[in-house]
């Protein structure tokens, strides 16, 4: 049986900043439960010391020289924004902190 409870779905949705209705929570809990049960088989595949692969083609030390390249103009930077003011991106007030 899956451990994907509605409360866990709510928590994960909140971590992912996605608003979910109660109906959606129930539905997602069911769907994710099935998927998680299926993908959990990866645990069976690995035993002992297997090095994880995070890059399919092993590489290292890829660096850029410390050189300044052209930036966007302020107008370009703000061109896709839903709202802006005083050359800055405008957002609703922030709830937490301070």
């Amino acid at each position: 049986m899956s451990e994907i409870t509605p409360d866990l779905v709510r928590h994960l949705a909140s971590l992912s900043r996605i608003l979910v209705t109660d109906d959606e929570v129930e539905k997602l809990a069911g769907e994710l439960g099935v998927i998680v049960d299926s993908v959990a088989t990866v645990n069976k595949a690995v035993s002992g010391d297997v090095v994880p692969t995070s890059h399919p083609i092993p590489m290292s030390n890829v660096f850029r020289e410390d050189e300044v390249a052209p930036s966007l103009t302020q107008e370009q930077a703000l061109s896709g924004a839903a709202d802006s003011a005083e050359g800055r991106f405008k957002v609703a007030a922030i709830l937490d902190e301070d």
Partner: peptide, 13 residues
């Protein structure tokens, strides 16, 4: 570890 970590190990295998 159980999920992402194991999946990355499967890649190695």
């Amino acid at each position: 570890d159980a999920y992402y970590g194991s999946a990355q190990k499967v890649r190695t295998l």
